[in-house]
């Protein structure tokens, strides 16, 4: 049984983030039998099986769309989810797209002094604040929206908290990672209410993503089966 047998039902709605994750998601979904592409400049697309209606939204706005139930499902990194402080079901963790949230500074600057208040520039003020408070370190946060690497160079703040993938941008700007704060994974999330109403179809969809053969095999997984059938 393929999932598209249910085409009489309205498709599941899902928001995908523009930018670095999008192509990885598209490729991963294609491997699992869910094919879709966006026409030029269009922001809404359907997958070929008719199961999914997909919206392309700005990374940082994705949780807002899912929180309001406009998109029932979404794919997002923990960095963005954490900043919103909203409640979502995390249905599945993907093995692509993970990065690290790091503390960085100019080379040989070393770890921050834990007694004096430390200035940190970041796009992730909530994460930075919670992290340093949990370590007992007083912190002053300067919120930036991009090119955070400039802050230590220009003297805005000695430290930055930012996502680091390869570290090449840091090196190019004569900065280095002082500490790795957290591994950041990419998740399939759901609006809780949307999940409760559509749990059967969503569970089958997640089962298809988990299976090697994807959207072509019988998918009868109920949630929790993983533990129940052990």
């Amino acid at each position: 049984m393929s999932l598209n047998l249910e085409s009489t039902e309205t498709p599941l709605t899902m928001a995908l983030p523009k930018g670095r994750l999008f192509e990885q998601v598209q490729e991963y979904f294609a491997e699992k039998g869910f094919h879709f592409k966006f026409e030029k400049r269009r922001l809404v697309a359907h997958d070929e099986s008719g199961l999914l209606k997909i919206f392309l939204v700005k990374n940082a706005d994705l949780p807002t769309y899912v929180n309001h139930g406009i998109a029932g499902l979404g794919i997002s990194g923990e960095d963005v989810l954490y900043e919103t402080g909203l409640r979502f079901f995390q249905l599945m963790q993907f093995d692509f797209g993970s990065t690290e949230m790091c503390l960085a500074a100019r080379k040989s600057y070393g770890k921050p002094n834990t007694i004096r208040t430390v200035s940190v520039a970041t796009k992730f003020p909530r994460f930075a604040r919670d992290y340093f408070y949990s370590q007992g370190v007083p912190i002053q946060i300067i919120k930036l929206n991009g090119s955070v690497e400039l802050a230590p160079i220009l003297g805005l703040a000695p430290y930055i908290v930012d996502l680091v993938e390869t570290g090449s941008t840091l090196r190019a700007n004569n900065l280095e990672v002082v500490d790795t704060l957290k591994k950041i994974n990419v998740h399939l999330i759901s609006n809780p209410s949307y999940y409760k109403l559509n749990y059967r179809r969503i569970n089958r969809f997640v089962a298809a993503l988990h299976s090697d053969t994807g959207n072509t095999v019988p998918g009868s997984s109920e949630s929790g089966r993983k533990y129940a059938d052990k």
Partner: peptide, 23 residues
């Protein structure tokens, strides 16, 4: 471990009455 499996499965379960009775 077996009891942990069962309790986790139960807290994750959603279904109608018949499905729940079977579960």
């Amino acid at each position: 471990p077996r009891r942990a499996d069962v309790i986790t499965a139960l807290f994750s379960f959603i279904g109608n009455r018949e499905e729940f009775s079977r579960e």
